[in-house]
């Protein structure tokens, strides 16, 4: 009996920093920003918070709002675009790299952007795209093609950033997919090869089906990350320009709060995006329960 009380006391003592942290940085902020999302507030003085009901949310979803189109559209474009591109690249790498010598070295190279700050990635790529002295336009010109102002042209700006986001995300996807590829027993391939199966059939009939849990995991977690991502766009374009061409939901939230001082509206954007992300996370959990791969 005495030991139980002692353990309880010790347990709560050990957990105390965590309790304090989540109270101050999670529970109070969640409540505070939920209240803000139903209010109008310019920051600073708490007594100036004015309750406005659902008006912020109505503004977001009104037909003339920028938030649905192009901002939320861009958000999905960016998330699906980066996930799709980096998945295709990572699958190719993960499948081929297991056949090579010095695997670990090759994989390390794909990993470099993962340990690099977004400020470096964004600036380096913005300069690669630059019309004066950038490598990509230098290459285009050398091939006799005209200069493209990738980040200044509304038609090319978002796709150009999607390429960078995908490039930066390859490493993490390679890691998970390689683990999946390696887990497939070699005997499956040997048996198929004795039957005379081609390289393509090995890939499509053995690797791909057996890799399904890893693939789903990469796609869904990548999608969740992509929907929230905005720092790369901020570093490369500043404010999501030209116009709203590269503006995404989390960046618009940031700008509304910290540039224009519309803290209430910004909070309603945060909650809207949170609900979108939450639904996808819930789907992920559901899919993985059903697939019996809870260990991921």
């Amino acid at each position: 009996m005495k030991r139980r009380t002692q353990q309880t006391l010790l347990g709560y003592t050990f957990m105390l920093p965590i309790f304090l942290f989540y109270s101050v940085f999670l529970i109070i902020p969640l409540g505070f920003s939920l209240i803000l999302s139903f209010s109008e507030w310019g920051g600073f003085d708490l007594s100036l918070i004015r309750f406005v009901g659902w008006r912020n949310y109505e503004d977001l979803f009104s037909p003339w709002s920028d938030f649905l189109n192009p901002i939320l559209w861009n958000t999905f474009y960016y998330a699906f675009g980066t996930v799709f591109l980096s998945f295709i690249a990572a699958l190719t790498v993960a499948y081929l790299v297991t056949k090579l010598r010095f695997q670990a070295f090759w994989r390390t190279m794909y990993f470099l952007p993962t340990v690099t700050t977004v400020v470096a990635i964004g600036n380096v790529w913005a300069y690669l795209y630059h019309p004066h002295g950038g490598m990509i336009n230098g290459l285009l010109n050398a091939l006799g093609m005209p200069t493209i102002r990738f980040l200044a042209n509304p038609d090319t700006a978002l796709p150009a950033i999607v390429v960078v986001g995908a490039w930066a995300g390859i490493g993490a996807a390679v890691l998970i997919l390689t683990a999946g590829v390696k887990a497939i027993p070699e005997t499956y391939y040997e048996a198929a090869m004795i039957e005379g199966a081609s390289e393509w059939r090995l890939f499509f009939n053995i690797t791909l089906p057996l890799l399904k849990p890893s693939i789903l995991f990469v796609l869904i977690t990548g999608l969740i990350g992509g929907l929230q991502s905005f720092t790369l766009i901020m570093v490369m374009t500043g404010d999501g320009g030209p116009g709203n061409a590269t503006n995404v939901a989390a960046l618009e939230m940031y700008n509304q709060a910290f540039r224009f001082g519309n803290w209430g509206l910004a909070s309603s954007m945060a909650y809207t995006l949170f609900i979108v992300v939450f639904i996808i996370t819930a789907i992920q959990l559901l899919v993985f329960r059903r697939g019996g791969v809870e260990s991921y």
Binding site: F25, L26, I28, P29, L30, F32, S33, L36, I224, Q228, F230, A250, M253, Y254, A257, W263, A266, S267, A270, Y271, L273, F274, V277
Partner: peptide, 8 residues
């Protein structure tokens, strides 16, 4: 997601 906590 982290962005939810930036403002508060």
């Amino acid at each position: 997601p982290a962005f939810l906590f930036l403002i508060p």
